[in-house]
C-alpha cells in the first residue's frame, strides 16, 4: 500500500508516495538521497541509523516513514551549522573518536541529544548514554573522550 508521505529533512521537504512498510532510514537514504544514516543491524541494537525526529533521537530503522509523516528530521548531514562543524563533530575529529566511521553519524546524533539532556555528563554517564550505539573500532574510549570534550567546548561557547 502506497501512502503519501512528507518529511522535512535538514530543512528541505521530501514528499512522495511510499510503501507503508518503508523504514524511515530507507526514506532518508533513498528518497532523500542522504546516506549519512547507516543500516548496521536489523534488531534496533546498533544505533548507526540514529537521527533526530522533531528533536528526539530515534533509531530510524525502527520507525516507518509514514510514522514520521509531517515531522522534521535532522541527520548527520544537517548537524553542521552553515558549514561550521558541530562541537561534537569537532571533538570526534580532535579526539580520534572514530576509525572506520560507519557508526559515527549515529554515534554523534545520539551524543548530541545526550549532551542536550545533560550538558556536563560524567564519563560513566556518557558510557551509559551511548549504550544504544555500537562501535567495533574504538573500544569506545576516544568516543567518550570526544563527548566529554564537546561538553566542555559547548560550555565554554555558552559563557
Amino acid at each position: 500500500m502506497q501512502v503519501e508521505t512528507k518529511i522535512s529533512i535538514n530543512g528541505k521537504d521530501y514528499e512522495g508516495e511510499v510503501e507503508a512498510r518503508t523504514l524511515l532510514v530507507h526514506f532518508i537514504r533513498d528518497v532523500g538521497g542522504l546516506t549519512g544514516a547507516k543500516v548496521g543491524c536489523d534488531t534496533s541494537q546498533c544505533g548507526a541509523c540514529t537521527v533526530h525526529v522533531d528533536g528526539v533521537a530515534v533509531k530510524s530503522c525502527t520507525m516507518l516513514a509514514v510514522q514520521a509523516d509531517g515531522t522534521s528530521v535532522t541527520t548527520i548531514e544537517g548537524l553542521a551549522d552553515d558549514g561550521d562543524l558541530h562541537p561534537l563533530q569537532e571533538a570526534f575529529w580532535a579526539k580520534h573518536g572514530l576509525q572506520c566511521g560507519f557508526c559515527t553519524p549515529g554515534m554523534i546524533m545520539a551524543a548530541a541529544k545526550l549532551l542536550e539532556a545533560n550538558p556536563s555528563p560524567s564519563e560513566e554517564e556518557v558510557r551509559h548514554g551511548l549504550e544504544g550505539n555500537f562501535c567495533r573500532c574504538t573500544g569506545y574510549q576516544n568516543i567518550v573522550r570526544a563527548v566529554t570534550e564537546a561538553a566542555d567546548a559547548q560550555k565554554e561557547g555558552a559563557e
Binding site: R29, L34, T35, G36, A37, K38, V39, T75, I76, E77, L79, A80, L85, Q89, F92, W93, A94, H96, L98, G101, F102, T104, P105, I108
Partner: peptide
C-alpha cells in the same frame, strides 16, 4: 605527532560513501 586524521571530515559529516551508499 598525534595530528588529526584527514579521513575524518568526510566521515563526521556523513559524506563518506560506503558500498551500500
Amino acid at each position: 605527532s598525534g595530528i588529526r586524521r584527514r579521513e575524518d571530515p568526510r566521515l563526521i559529516t556523513g559524506k563518506a560513501a560506503y558500498t551500500d551508499d
